[in-house]
């Protein structure tokens, strides 16, 4: 990976942009941020959608542009589709943040509320394209579950 103080600075700005639906996670945590580079004086940021129709992607692109503009950088946001996003790109830190926010981590059976593993699927779809609805048999709470996608 190419580094320079200026590039490190813009990378730090961009990687702090948050997902509008899951504000405890950054786009870096989610694996949505693919690349940051300079083309002359313009910062070019590549992002990838989680799901094809994810409406958050447009908001994320606007937030990136706004964050960079507040530091006086001109930018362009590009969408890349290949390789296709997978939940395998989410970091351990991201999974922990999800659980803290009350969202079950992909591939995990653990209830984010009581840590029981006695959970089951209630609905394979939920409030956003990337989430399903699970329920815990121990504490009886329903919780959003981040769908495994690979």
């Amino acid at each position: 990976m190419v580094t320079s103080p200026r590039l490190d600075a813009v990378r730090a700005i961009v990687s702090e942009v948050r997902d509008p639906e899951l504000p405890s996670l950054t786009i870096q945590d989610l694996g949505v941020l693919r690349e940051v580079r300079f083309e002359g004086e313009t910062v070019v940021v590549s992002i990838t959608p989680t799901y094809s129709g994810c409406p958050a992607l447009g908001v994320i692109a606007e937030d990136i542009t706004a964050a960079l503009r507040s530091h006086s950088f001109e930018s362009r946001v590009e969408t890349v589709l290949s390789p296709a996003w997978t939940t395998d790109w989410m970091s351990e830190a991201a999974r922990a943040k999800l659980m803290d926010a009350g969202v079950g981590a992909p591939g995990s059976r653990t209830c984010p509320n009581c840590d029981s593993d006695q959970t089951r699927s209630l609905s394979e779809y939920g409030s956003t394209a990337c989430q399903a609805l699970h329920v815990c048999e121990s504490c009886s709470e329903t919780f959003p579950y981040f769908k495994t996608h690979r």
């Binding site: 959608p49 799901y51 129709g53 994810c54 209630l122 609905s123 939920g126």
Partner: peptide
């Protein structure tokens, strides 16, 4: 739950169509 499922499927389809 079914409405959410159907709406999400529609959204995925629409997203691919748009691309």
């Amino acid at each position: 739950e079914e409405e959410l499922a159907i709406a999400n499927t529609a959204l995925d389809n629409l997203g691919v169509a748009q691309q």
